[in-house]
């Protein structure tokens, strides 16, 4: 299955990215040990010059990684027709045991890359390389994740064989099937999932507005948006998907991307991913504001990112509400609201 244009493109990008970041790891180590802005030695000058190269390279590589996550999922969805039994991306990812690990690693990489890019952006605003050590220390932690993600992707694509009969979302996300993370998420009660989602989003909005208006609590906002991501995904898997498919037992988070459902998944996931990445970025930028040379620039970046992040979460919420409102499925009849109300009043069991 290696000779598939998209697969070649994905591997090309992930392997060159790994090579590039790997090549800059020794530099990062040297920089962490030797960096001394006060010194005018030749070694320091060389280090300063070289940071431009490494920063530009890593910027490019991480941007490519952001794009390749989208391509990876899109491709998994598209390739489903090549596998017997596969109807959507789940089947393609299930076709080899490295499929889901590769996806998870790529998602993790997406957020790490976004965080690093924020750090880099903020660092470039200051004249005295204020975050240079933080940046390269972060690069050292990012490199192994990138390498792991690339390896998982490589193993996955090497292991893919078109004659494998794979199981699809109907067995994965209906309970009683194979146990993956999605299964336990799917078992989450609808009411609980929606309440959790509402509470989390409310918290995010409150914290975000507090930060935008008062200029305080940027870090808390970053943490809140990071926490909102898994909650939102859980709500999508357990409840929102059910509303879209109008089938009580179909929980697949990938079928949402398909044309049959109007590609509504993109309207959910793109704002969600962007909002989370921007939110984390806002938190990071706010943390950087304590450096003297960054006090103003970091604050500005943090506000800007928080604004985008809030807009993203708002878009996600609006799409979610529309999906529920438009659906013909009624999960909560009048009687069903009672235990929910008791649950809310009782503050959870």
């Amino acid at each position: 299955m290696l000779f598939h244009p998209v697969i070649i493109a994905l591997l090309l990008s992930s392997l060159t990215s790994t090579a590039m970041v790997g090549a800059s790891v020794p530099f990062a180590v040297r920089l962490l040990r030797r960096w001394d802005l006060a010194s005018g030695s030749e070694a320091q000058l060389l280090l300063e010059r070289r940071t431009y190269l490494v920063s530009t390279l890593v910027q490019l590589v991480l941007l490519a990684q952001l794009a390749s996550l989208v391509l990876f999922v899109f491709n998994a969805d598209r390739m489903a027709s090549l596998f017997t039994g596969a109807m959507c991306a789940v089947g393609t990812l299930e076709a080899d045991r490295f499929g889901f690990p590769a996806l998870y690693a790529n998602i993790a990489l997406f957020f790490l890359a976004a965080a690093w890019l924020t750090l880099d952006h903020v660092d470039n605003r200051g004249w005295d390389y204020p975050l240079i050590r933080v940046k390269y220390a972060a690069l050292l932690t990012l490199a192994p994740v990138l390498a792991l993600a690339s390896l998982a992707e490589l193993a996955y694509f090497l292991g893919l064989r078109a004659d494998v009969i794979t199981s699809c979302c109907s067995t994965l996300f209906s309970g009683g099937g194979i146990t993956v993370a999605g299964n336990s998420l799917a078992a989450l009660p609808h009411g609980l999932a929606l309440v959790l989602l509402c509470l989390t989003l409310l918290a995010v909005f409150a914290l975000g507005l507090r930060f935008l208006v008062g200029g305080r609590g940027g870090t808390a906002y970053g943490a809140a948006s990071a926490a909102a991501f898994p909650v939102a995904l859980a709500a999508v898997v357990s409840t929102l998907s059910v509303y879209v498919y109008e089938l009580p037992n179909h929980h697949c988070p990938f079928c949402l991307l398909k044309a049959e459902y109007g590609h509504v998944g993109y309207a959910l996931y793109i704002p969600l991913f962007a909002a989370t990445a921007c939110g984390i970025g806002a938190g990071i930028a706010q943390r950087c504001a304590d450096r003297a040379s960054l006090a103003e620039a970091a604050q500005r970046t943090a506000r800007c990112l928080a604004g985008w992040s809030l807009a993203g979460f708002a878009a996600f919420a609006i799409v979610a509400v529309c999906l529920v409102a438009r659906s013909h499925l009624i999960l909560f009849g009048p009687s069903a609201w009672r235990p929910l109300a008791e649950f809310v009043v009782g503050g959870g069991r």
Binding site: P5, V6, I8, A9, L10, L12, S13, T16, M20, L57, L60, A64, A67, S68, V70, L71, F74, N75, R78
Partner: peptide, 16 residues
């Protein structure tokens, strides 16, 4: 998706 991979094939190596 092909367009996206085409972009990867051409712009990415060139920029790199």
């Amino acid at each position: 998706i092909q367009m996206a991979s085409l972009f990867f094939f051409t712009v990415f190596p060139y920029t790199l």
